[in-house]
Amino acid sequence: MLTVPIEIQILFAGILFLLGLIGLLVRRNMIYMLMSIEIMFNSAGLVFVIAANHWKQPDGQVMFIFILAVTAVEVAIGLALLLQVYHHFKTLDADSVNKLKDYN
């Protein structure tokens, strides 16, 4: 079976992580920002799976299951908070939710 070298696999995960980061910085809608964060988490999870496969250990896979659980909780709370944000500010645009500022 043809195997891809580990460097390429890590690079792939790194590109995914960067895509998530770029998405977070470029997008102003907070639902998309949450999605970008998910991509970042999952790319980290992917590296754990790759490493576990490389070292022939189960630890990385275990970590990935923990990551899945944690991100699920995070998204649940994130969406609940977004609902509240929409109730209060009538928008999900990150730039408009900006009442807390210096010097006031």
Binding site: A13, G20, M30, F41, A44, G78, K99, L100
Partner: peptide, 22 residues
Amino acid sequence: EAGIKYLILASVSSAFLLFGMA
């Protein structure tokens, strides 16, 4: 507002932490 700001920024930092660990 403070909650959602903390949520987004803290999750990004956790993602960095996790990628570093990986």
